[in-house]
């Protein structure tokens, strides 16, 4: 069968020790049997390795940070689209999603399709609103509360016991054992991601994660559970294994069904020793370990592209159990002239 030629733009090319999902997503798409994809990398920083991985990324462009606002982003994408004629755009950073969702109607006008959660879905799963999310969908969530000032740290003992988790609005999470530590993390995280800071009860148990894809009508197109086997000193998965866990899968399907989730999603849960699942975080996009799902038989990046293009799609029913991923690093060699070209022309 002749594969369909498409152009897909992808962010999150920071394939470093704490990788963005861009490169794994690209690998999934390039392995597609139905698409012959040309990949356009969208990068925020000059040293995102994906920019220089020419066998995976055909051409890369700098785009402005989300902090510059959607107007400026759109202007830049318009320029890129004039050259590249993008069919589908897949943003992969939490911090940029809001801006892309806001811009999605304008992107559509340019002929660029996205497949993102709705603003309402995106908002209700915010870390600050997790307790309400739990209540609404009848899912166990740890006790948590947003805080807006240092003063509130001293009052935490009223409804929390140490240790507890200190989390940023978009990224970063630390276990804190004391008020002093909480204060330290409060400033560390708020300096980077702003306020509020989320204080979350520390639930003991095993962390299990699910990567899934919702079609926006309540159907789960695919879902693969995973347990991290080894983590780096940054707390990121180094290796993980697919899990045969039907209750975790049905919980995932329940969340997607009730919320009519649209797009990629990663659920982070703690399974306690009483076999209870506590939902600790919802990431509104495919995670960096999504390639494990591809390897286990569910090409979720490809499925996402199909959904974005409005193609018919059959849900994945199974995946291979006992598949592992092992992350490794690899030194890419490139010349300073490439860096020069990128910094001067903002494209490579």
């Amino acid at each position: 069968m002749k594969r369909k030629k498409i152009t897909v733009a992808v962010t999150g090319l920071n394939n470093i020790d704490n990788p963005g999902p861009g490169i794994p997503v690209i690998r999934g798409i390039l392995e597609s049997k139905i698409f012959d994809a040309r990949i356009i990398g969208l990068a925020y920083e000059s040293l995102e390795p994906g920019i220089y991985m020419h066998e995976l990324v055909n051409k890369s462009y700098h785009i402005p940070y989300p902090t510059a606002g959607s107007d400026i982003l759109l202007k830049r994408l318009e320029y890129i689209n004039d050259i590249e004629k993008i069919d589908v755009l897949i943003p992969n950073f939490d911090a940029e999603l809001y801006t892309f969702m806001k811009a999605s109607a304008d992107l559509e006008k340019m002929g660029i399709k996205t497949f993102l959660p709705t603003l309402a879905q995106f908002e209700e799963r915010q870390k600050t609103l997790l307790p309400m999310f739990g209540k609404k969908y009848k899912i166990i969530v740890p006790h948590s509360r947003p805080i807006f000032s240092e003063k509130e740290i001293y009052e935490l003992s009223r409804d929390f016991t140490y240790p507890l988790l200190v989390k940023g609005k978009y990224y970063d999470a630390y276990i804190s054992y004391s008020t002093e530590q909480t204060k330290m993390y409060y400033y560390k995280i708020s300096g980077k991601w702003g306020l509020p800071i989320i204080i979350q009860e520390f639930v003991e148990g095993t962390e299990v994660n699910v990567v899934a894809l919702g079609d926006g009508n309540g159907n789960t197109i695919g879902a693969v559970p995973m347990r991290k086997q080894y983590i780096t000193d940054k707390g990121k998965a180094w290796s993980g294994i697919t899990l045969d866990d039907s209750s975790l899968l049905s919980l995932t399907k329940k969340i997607i069904k009730k919320s009519k989730w649209k797009g990629g999603i990663e659920l982070e849960m703690i399974k306690t020793k009483d076999n209870e699942y506590h939902l600790i975080e919802i990431n509104p996009r495919l995670p960096a370990w999504v390639y494990l799902a591809v390897g286990a038989g569910q090409n979720l990046p490809e499925a996402l592209v199909k959904l974005a293009l409005g193609m018919k799609i059959e849900p994945y029913k199974k995946f291979l159990k006992g598949k592992l991923f092992l992350r490794y690093s690899y030194d890419l060699i490139c010349d300073i002239s490439e860096f020069e070209k990128l910094t001067h022309y903002a494209e490579l």
Binding site: Y44, S46, L47, H62, P64, Y65, T67, A68, I72, A346
Partner: peptide
């Protein structure tokens, strides 16, 4: 000086 950071052109909150 150029570093890991964004390109000087499309990086930060500069207005076009």
């Amino acid at each position: 000086k150029l570093n890991v950071g964004p390109s000087h052109k499309f990086g930060l909150k500069t207005e076009f």
